[in-house]
Computed example of a mutant assay.
Amino acid sequence: MADFGDSMGISASGMRAQAMRMRIVSENVANADTPGYHRKLVTFRPEDRDQPGAVEIGRVTLDPSEPERILDPGHPLADAQGYRLSSNVEAVIEMADAREAQRSYEANLRMFDQARQMSARLLELLRR
């Protein structure tokens, strides 16, 4: 039964990490039109617990790529040459990241459910 609990814990850690990743992606999408906003990047790392295979969110870093400079002399944030900075968020990349996080979350959920069903069946067999 401990192996079922371990596998459920690993799956749960994956679901927590992917939910946090979706939160970061949604922050990026929400700030896509914010001038000078740098896209946040998520990294994963092993949890520091006894469960090998469990993951958590590592440091959230900023995308080092420069935001696009847009010529807009009438904009209040334009510099002396008439350029303003947009954000470096690409909607296509964020949608792909969101889709990947969703699929990973669903895969962890299926693994969690499989472990739960297997442990329930084992308990039924032991009761007989």
Rank of each mutant, 00 (worst) to 15 (best):
F4C: 03
S7C: 12
M8E: 01
G9P: 06
I10Y: 04
S11N: 11
A12H: 01
M15V: 06
A17F: 07
A19H: 08
M22A: 15
V25C: 11
E27F: 06
E27D: 15
E27V: 05
N28L: 05
D33N: 15
D33K: 12
P35M: 02
P35R: 01
P35A: 06
R39F: 00
L41V: 12
L41I: 13
V42P: 12
V42E: 11
T43V: 07
T43K: 13
A54W: 00
V55N: 10
E56V: 04
G58C: 11
L62R: 14
P64D: 13
P67T: 00
R69L: 14
L71K: 10
H75F: 05
L77S: 11
L77Q: 12
A80C: 05
G82I: 02
R84V: 15
V89H: 01
E90H: 02
E90G: 03
A91V: 04
I93P: 04
A96P: 10
A96W: 08
A101H: 11
Q102L: 12
R103G: 12
A107M: 12
A107E: 06
L109T: 01
R110P: 02
D113R: 03
D113V: 00
Q117N: 09
A120C: 01
L123N: 08
L126A: 13
R128C: 06
